[in-house]
Design a protein around this nucleic acid. Structure first.
Lengths: 207, 207
DNA sequence: CCGTGTGAATGAGTTCACAGCC
DNA sequence: GGCTGTGAACTCATTCACACGG
């Protein structure tokens, strides 16, 4: 990983991965940057340049071998393994996430769930039993948990994130509507449908 | 709307709106670009420039009046009114969205729900009764629905989006893991936690 | 001839730095 | 003195355009 890959490029890779999966299902063996771009509404040049950060996967005159490129992308994105996740907060949202099928299918497995509410502790949801949030430390020590999903009320989010990080979690998927601070090197992504809506109404308001 | 506002700028406005709401709750009357930037980890210059696309809201030597700026942002983002939304697909995800409290609190009201499964049609969920998806046309004609939320399986997403648009919906919040195509002028935002995870594992993979 | 990979050119977005006002 | 608003400088990202290989 000598050269620094721009963040925007990384953010597009999962998109490439997704259409390639689709193309594989369609039994397409080869795809050009042209075809990929048409599906994603990107320019072919952008796709070629993005991929060129990681190697030379194409064949001149033909395009990219779908299976090959998929495999490369899996390696690049770290999708050739399972990732253990812990959910903190098993309110309505947390429970929905525990039942969300797309996670396990893509290799993201929720292996622990926590809540501060004693009434919820001990309940079995899906494959996991809800634990008291104070057990975070011991629970994380045992299992290999790489990613924390935060589904607690806004007021608690930063504290929960701090705890997760202090126990070794390196990535946070944050559903709380809070702009959290994380130390350098820790990955953080916000999932916030309200913000998405608010950035659309800007364009809708004269309608 | 003479000058063209960059998309990135618009995407940051909801973030500004959010901390300003917080500051208002904290009874802070005035905030400088410095303070706002510190909370969001943006440079003060960026915040000033972003806001300058819309007017001159600050006072030199003091900063921005929190209440005033909030009001301006509400006007800019179109949050000074209610927005009617329709959910298509009332599986687990769709039902979670129907019960999601943050939408109504922020003025986003789900006023209709649709599904293609006859077993689900007629059920009352929250304030709305699930309708057959073929009734989309008549239902949208009656109520004022501005935004469509798509929570159907990937294979149906594009068709549903096309229908919504053909009946006058101008904005789509898409939960299906599909890169959909929409005509010019239609707003589309994807909510896809799996993609967020996949862009984090890139940075985690040597861990 | 078609399509990749890539330096060079262009375009977009961010930060600087300072004049002007409170 | 402190902080905004903003052109100018700079940095980062996208697109162009072409040499090269299949």
């Amino acid at each position: 990983m000598a050269e620094q890959v721009p963040r925007v490029v990384v953010s597009r890779l999962p998109l490439y991965y997704r259409i390639l999966c689709l193309l594989e299902e369609e039994k397409k063996a080869v795809a050009s940057s042209q075809e990929l771009g048409a599906r994603l509404q990107f320019t072919p040049a952008q796709i070629r340049k993005d991929l060129s950060y990681f190697g030379r996967f194409g064949k001149q005159g033909k395009g990219y071998n779908v299976k090959r490129l998929l495999q490369e992308l899996r390696k690049i994105l770290g999708l050739d393994r399972e990732w253990g996740m812990a959910v903190v907060g098993v309110g309505k949202l947390g429970r929905a996430l525990l039942g969300y099928g797309a996670f396990p299918v893509q290799g993201f497995r929720i292996v622990a769930a926590f809540d501060s509410d004693p009434a919820k502790v001990g309940r079995k949801l899906g494959n996991v039993t809800v634990q008291e949030i104070t057990e975070l430390s011991s629970a994380l020590a045992g299992k290999r948990i790489h990613i924390g999903i935060v589904a607690v009320p806004p007021s608690e989010a930063q504290a929960v994130i701090n705890q997760l990080i202090s126990y070794g979690v390196k990535a946070i998927l944050n559903y709380a509507p809070v702009h959290a601070q994380v130390p350098n090197g820790i990955q953080l992504r916000d999932v916030d449908p309200v913000m998405a809506l608010q950035s659309m109404t800007f364009y809708l308001k004269n309608t």
